[in-house]
Design a protein around this nucleic acid. Structure first.
Length: 232
DNA sequence: ACTTGATCATGG
DNA sequence: CCATGATCAAGT
């Protein structure tokens, strides 16, 4: 819950990567009660079910992210994407990570990995682990050490293969038959307010295709590898 | 235990 | 409506 009467001001965007990292380290180890207090935000009650984006917005506030609700990086000048990731006591991710919505219709530039939204978003990510155990009160959940990450060449190759496979399912197959098990690191899952929302288009044979809007997600097993590789 | 499919709030 | 930020909870 964001307090609109708040006079507290979010920091201006970091001028460079070092400053961003410095800010991230400055909040590492703090819990959500302390972070909410500093921002003058109100903590949500017991569950995040009605406040799913609250934690992410709070972290954005503290670091001075300016991406807003637009299709751009959280730190446009730095080209860095911020991802808060819920982890257990061992630092292992508890959930998959949403990346971006999947295009509903193929436009030419969407067909090239090098130009893709997904590649841009994943080219430079600041991971911020946050305790996400459901039995831990929200106020007591602590932020972990930040990790500034770029995909290795090997990883990017797999991401590209996944992306190409999933895109071909979207545009050459039957989108309604897409299941979340496709993809090694990536997966396509519903991404909408609810399941009655549908995209419609005509396939190459003129048949009407109806399917739920999809988003690209990083599998929990993949983000677990990323964090383990770094933190050991 | 883990994954898949569904869902919630907000801003432009 | 669609993008952002995600987590929930049913299914396997």
């Amino acid at each position: 819950m964001r307090d609109k009467l708040s006079t507290m001001k979010s920091p201006i965007p970091p001028l460079n990567t070092a400053e961003l990292l410095h800010r991230a380290w400055a909040v590492a180890g703090l819990n959500l009660q302390e972070l909410a207090l500093r921002a003058n935000w109100t903590l949500p009650p017991g569950s995040l079910v009605h406040h799913k984006g609250w934690v992410g917005k709070l972290i954005e506030w503290h670091l001075g992210a300016t991406g807003e609700s637009k299709a751009q990086a959280d730190f446009p000048k730095l080209g860095i994407e911020l991802k808060t990731i819920p982890v257990d006591q061992q630092g292992r991710p508890l959930e998959s990570t949403y990346v971006c919505t999947a295009p509903a219709l193929a436009s030419l530039h969407e067909l090239y990995w090098e130009d893709s939204w997904l590649k841009r978003k994943l080219s430079h990510v600041l991971w911020l682990p946050l305790e996400g155990m459901r039995d831990k009160p929200i106020a007591e959940r602590r932020l972990g050490a930040p990790l500034l990450w770029r995909p290795s060449l090997d990883i990017e190759q797999v991401l590209r293969q996944d992306w190409e496979e999933l895109l071909s399912l979207l545009f050459l197959g039957e989108p309604a038959k897409i299941r979340a098990h496709y993809g090694r690191y990536l997966q396509l899952r519903p991404k909408a307010a609810h399941s009655r929302i549908v995209n419609t288009h005509y396939d190459s044979e003129g048949n009407l295709q109806v399917s739920t809007p999809k988003g690209f997600y990083l599998r929990t097993s993949f983000t677990s590898e990323i964090l383990q590789h770094h933190y050991g």
